[in-house]
Design a protein around this nucleic acid. Sequence first.
DNA 1: TTTTATTTGTCCGTATGTATT
DNA 2: CAATACATACGGACAAATAAA
Lengths: 251, 251
Amino acid sequence: MTRTKQAGVDRTSGVALWRQIADDIRIAIGAGEFREAGKLPGEIALAERFGVNRHTVRAAIAALQNEGIVKARPGRGTEILDDIRLKMPISRRTRFSSGLGGQARRPESVYIASGEASASEEVAAALRIAPGAPCVTLESLGLADGIPVSLAFHHFPTVRFAGIDEHFRRERSVTRAFAAMGLADYVRVSTDISARHADEREREWLRLTPGGIVLEALAINADLDGAPVQYSRTLFSAGRVSLHVGTDMEL
Amino acid sequence: MTRTKQAGVDRTSGVALWRQIADDIRIAIGAGEFREAGKLPGEIALAERFGVNRHTVRAAIAALQNEGIVKARPGRGTEILDDIRLKMPISRRTRFSSGLGGQARRPESVYIASGEASASEEVAAALRIAPGAPCVTLESLGLADGIPVSLAFHHFPTVRFAGIDEHFRRERSVTRAFAAMGLADYVRVSTDISARHADEREREWLRLTPGGIVLEALAINADLDGAPVQYSRTLFSAGRVSLHVGTDMEL
DNA sequence: TTTTATTTGTCCGTATGTATT
DNA sequence: CAATACATACGGACAAATAAA
């Protein structure tokens, strides 16, 4: 029998067949293809669909099981577990904790590290300070129900917010750290969104598998006079978060 | 010599080493790591950095060359080509062509297919019509300078926009198709953004390699009375596009 | 111009992992 | 649990192109 090309599997792409198939099935689940049945087709049916051997499909399903997306049991098939993708609002009043609050989950910010640095060109332009001017850096991990969903790198101008990292450590919230320093309110000025593969460090913190995807959001927050107070680079775990941009931008 | 773990390459992940290294280098380029030199370190230096053989690094560089990110030449090293990531604005007045217009590129929309369908739950909720009600579907490809950057699936309520696909074929623009049907203006109501691996069909149209990433934007447009006129699912090639959300939402 | 060092490109062979039959 | 085919990864050797001495 001659081999015919099937369902988009590619043997010379540097990605193992079982991983390509795992990715495909993950997408199909996300598209709701098996929602009615609540479970995947049998291994033999999947093997035919992708034009591969049943062993290869088993490797793919094992990977999905490892990610917590499906659960296979002998005699019962491969059950699709509930999707738990969070919707993170992006608006003038974007805040991490309140953004996830409505979704009946326990949001939490955890301190990772902080320090002092000279502003790079990028940071300086965003904060409207001179390149090389001092800024406070703060790294934090966002969790929902104990599951990591975001990894954030914040920058604040030192001249105005020296010691804000200590406030964050106590308050576990950027909003409350600002409040403790006398800034009662602030607004989101702009957000730049892109997507890419996570690097190793990001995969570790966000508990992603190799090939895992992050949504990268570059955000500028300003006080009510329009002066930039914060520049952040936040990496969201793409499998667990979507970003929602509403254009009715009031409160 | 015993092998030590290096720079985050994982030999049991189903992703070939050369592809992991290509992803790493792509990220490093994006982070500006080699901006000063304008080129990558030599193959031997990279091989040491990742703890692999020189040939493996060569395979990674070949992949990046194929993507148009770098160009290697004997005796000269591996030059990093200019970044060409487009910035797609998301605002109340989001339109494909004008959004890319400011970036000195030739934007173009190409008709792929169209038809008539019954509204799914998702489409019906977005367009505020009854589930199962008829809607016009339209699929189009967005290009910038001939390079595919987006693949879009549009839905319009048939009751109001029957035949809009024919207008799109002539006008090659949703905005102009709306205008031709008497709708002079419309605004973006909401946009939901997520990221995932592209499936095979998407990879073909957007000319992506396996493992390629798309930004998926679910968008609702409405007329000035607030009645939904269009629901779109647009897949942006994540390597070529970032989405920019400004919160100064007027014009 | 010639020489030399550096860097990429190509070839060989071998071992291991992946996928099928 | 084989036998087979192919992709991946390694190691070494040498050729070709380039830049600098």
